[in-house]
């Protein structure tokens, strides 16, 4: 074996150890609730806890709402920029990157200042409107991922000509977006959606400071008070995230096959 290849293999082994040893450790630990035997008791306890079901449901609903609002916001914007305002693209890209640069804690303090119960728009005044605020803040958090995914999808198709073809056949803007553009960037929208889902399911800071019963704060609460269950929860939330990644891969592959066929 050549020394260079040996080096690459060493790097890979190092990487795998770096990522998987803690994970395996956590997994192994999560099975040791009962002394002396491996068991899934910790998982049973976690899954039996009504707060687990409640918080997962809450976060899932919020994630779905975030995805819906995010797509409605991002798809027409990215489409219009691609079609009519290409010069604005760098500006919009910068704006969509801001949530990565500004920490969530800063954002949420900003929200609390602007939308507190004695402000002009007291969104934190009731639980429902706080949910709304939380959902919008998730849209902001997911913006970099959603925008990039959708924008990549739009770049892969000939937006302008498809639009013009549809226009000449009598289609208005809503028809073009729904029947021509959206189906052709479906894969990109889905991968943006799964990324958003993964972010929202695990998010802690915003949900915690806005005091909403989301999965992230529940995770933290259990982690602070129990020994084996948090490990089980970590494994469960990892599985959810990985399932999302897997779905992106599966749908992404379907699409690239189709594109390859076109050439």
């Amino acid at each position: 074996m050549k020394p260079r290849r040996l080096g690459s293999w060493l790097l890979i082994v190092f990487g795998v150890l770096y990522f998987f040893v803690p994970l395996l450790g956590t997994f192994e630990f999560s099975l040791r609730l009962l002394r002396g035997v491996y068991s899934v008791a910790a998982y049973r306890i976690v899954l039996a806890d009504p707060r687990f079901a409640a918080t997962v449901t809450y976060s899932t609903v919020l994630a779905l709402a975030t995805i819906a609002v995010g797509v409605l916001l991002v798809l027409p914007t990215a489409y219009w920029i691609q079609l009519r305002l290409p010069r604005l693209r760098p500006v919009v890209e910068f704006i969509t990157l801001l949530p990565l640069v500004i920490p969530a804690i800063v954002l949420v303090f900003g929200y609390l200042r602007i939308y507190n119960s004695s402000s002009a728009l007291p969104l934190t005044g009731s639980a429902r409107t706080t949910d709304l605020l939380l959902m919008f803040s998730y849209v902001t958090l997911a913006l970099p991922y959603m925008y990039r995914a959708v924008d990549n999808g739009l770049r892969a198709i000939d937006v302008r000509t498809l639009t013009e073809a549809a226009q000449s056949l009598g289609a208005g803007w809503s028809t073009i977006l729904l029947r021509v553009i959206l189906p052709n960037v479906r894969v990109a929208v889905l991968s943006g959606a799964f990324l958003t889902f993964a972010i929202v399911i695990g998010e802690f800071t915003m949900a915690s400071l806005l005091d909403r019963p989301a999965f992230g704060p529940y995770l933290q609460l259990i982690g602070a008070n129990r020994a084996y269950e948090p490990a089980a929860l970590s494994i469960i939330s990892f599985s959810i995230t990985w399932a999302c990644m897997g779905f992106i891969q599966v749908f992404g592959r379907g699409a690239s096959g189709q594109v390859a066929g076109a050439h």
Partner: peptide, 9 residues
Amino acid sequence: FQSYALFPN
């Protein structure tokens, strides 16, 4: 159009 512009979906 020159590029056909058929709707791929």
